[in-house]
C-alpha cells in the first residue's frame, strides 16, 4: 500500500505539465493533387481548465482553428481564437463543429499517411504547451471516419 502511494507521488512529481493534455483519434482528410486545404479532427482532454490556441503542421503553410456552423441550411466556417478545454471533459473536433484547418499544403495527403501536427494549449497560468499529434489520413470519400456520425 505504502509502496503504491509512493509510486503515485513519484509519478505526480516527475510528470511533465504535458501529461495533463491527452489527444486521441486524430485524423485528417486526404486530398487530391492541387487541393491546397484540408481539415484535421481529434479528441482532446485536459486534466485542468485549458484552451487550445493554435496548431502547426510542417506540410501546411498556414494552420487555423475553425468552427463550422449550419444555420437555415447555410454552411459557415470561421476562424476562432481558441477552443476551451474544460477540465476532465473530452472536447471533440469533428465535422459539423470545430476543426484544425490546413492551408497551402506543400503536397497532397494520401489515405493511410501519418501527418504530424502540433497543437498549442494555453494553461491557466498562461504558459503554453505544445503537444505533438499524429493524424491518420482517411480517404476523401470515407464516411465512417473516427468520430464521424453516420448521416
Amino acid at each position: 500500500m505504502k509502496r503504491i502511494a509512493l509510486a503515485v507521488i513519484a509519478a505526480l512529481v516527475s510528470a511533465p505539465a504535458l501529461a495533463g493534455v491527452v489527444v486521441k483519434d486524430a485524423w485528417i482528410r486526404a486530398t487530391v493533387p492541387h487541393q491546397k486545404t484540408t481539415g484535421a479532427f481529434m479528441q482532446i482532454v485536459s486534466d485542468r481548465d485549458a484552451r487550445l490556441v493554435g496548431a502547426r503542421c510542417p506540410l501546411a503553410g498556414t494552420v487555423e482553428l475553425h468552427e463550422m456552423t449550419m444555420t437555415d441550411n447555410m454552411m459557415r466556417m470561421r476562424a476562432v481564437d481558441g477552443i476551451d478545454l474544460p477540465a476532465g471533459r473530452t472536447v471533440t473536433l469533428k465535422p459539423g463543429g470545430f476543426h484544425v484547418m490546413l492551408f497551402d499544403l506543400r503536397r497532397p495527403i494520401h489515405a493511410g499517411d501519418t501527418v504530424p501536427l502540433s497543437i498549442v494549449v494555453e494553461m491557466p497560468d498562461k504558459s503554453r504547451e505544445t503537444i505533438e499529434v499524429e493524424a491518420h489520413a482517411v480517404p476523401l470519400g470515407a464516411s465512417h471516419a473516427h468520430g464521424m456520425h453516420d448521416h
Binding site: R29, V32, Q35, K36, T37, T38, G39, H66, M68, M70, M75, M77, P95, G96, H99, M101, L140, G141, A142, S143, M148, H151
Partner: peptide, 15 residues
C-alpha cells in the same frame, strides 16, 4: 473542393 467538412460529408453520403 477546399471545404474540409460539409462538402466531403455530402459527397460521401452521395456515394
Amino acid at each position: 473542393t477546399q471545404c474540409p467538412d460539409v462538402c466531403p460529408t455530402t459527397l460521401a453520403r452521395a456515394v
